[in-house]
Amino acid sequence: MSKQKLWIPLSSIVRRALRLTQRVPISSAARTQPILASFSPSNSENCGLFPSRGFDFLGSSKLSGRCSLSTQSAEKVVDAKCWNCNAEAEAAPFLVCRSCRCIQPVDQSVDYFRIFGLEKKYDIEDDNLERKYKDWQKKLHPDLVHSKSEREREYAAEQSARVIDAFRTLNKPLSRAIYILKLEGVDVDEEETISEPDLLAEIMEIREAVEEAADSQALKQLQSQMQEKLEHWSNLFAIAFRNRNFGDARKSIRRMTYYERVNEEIVKKL
């Protein structure tokens, strides 16, 4: 098998570790705090080993308690109050106070779909995602709060980073699929060894084709093939997810992950 430079992000391991910690009942949360504190679990890009922006490494225990990714009900947020002017939160998601325009601390219970006011489903039909993303950045971006208090600048850095992650995650079918499953408490092990014989055989075949592709024409053809396969499995995922058939959903993700990797390889060669 040819050597490839594809790496494991620690975040995927962190996620696995988290699955364990999430089973810990809330009452014992205090005991697990030091561990939890070192992993901000929600975020696949903002990994946990190192302190997140603006937080003191050891003092970040303020994260715990509401760091669970589970499907907390949305309505809870309405109790929230602005830390600055004490005004009641008018609308969810409560990222910015309407009355004083102050940026609020990150609330991990607000999932990525709700950030963009989307229904929690896989096949989002929203061409406006990028627009909404930019609208948020216009309210949250750290560049815009230079003259504000250090506290608000910290919130801006975190909120804006989270919105970037949310956008990136939802914008691509594969990452969206993995994320939505995670919200259901189903973790996808991206490093899992493939055991399905038919997929293994297909992998070998495609791999050979990519390696032997003579020119960019051939590569582009392979690329559109991968695109088709991705769409096909994306549709299958949507069906499986709707039927809450998580086994099939994971199978689709495995396929999509693989075709996506081939795509990356092709782009590198192009």
Binding site: L10, A17, S38, L49, F50, R53, A156
Partner: peptide, 27 residues
């Protein structure tokens, strides 16, 4: 060995590196 890079809003670059404990994922 985990190497992490962080560019903040003011474009400052910080590099973190740490050794993970064997079998666990803590530094």
């Amino acid at each position: 060995i985990n190497v992490c890079m962080d560019i903040d809003a003011s474009n400052a670059l910080r590099v973190f590196a740490g050794v993970l404990q064997p079998g666990s994922h803590l530094p």
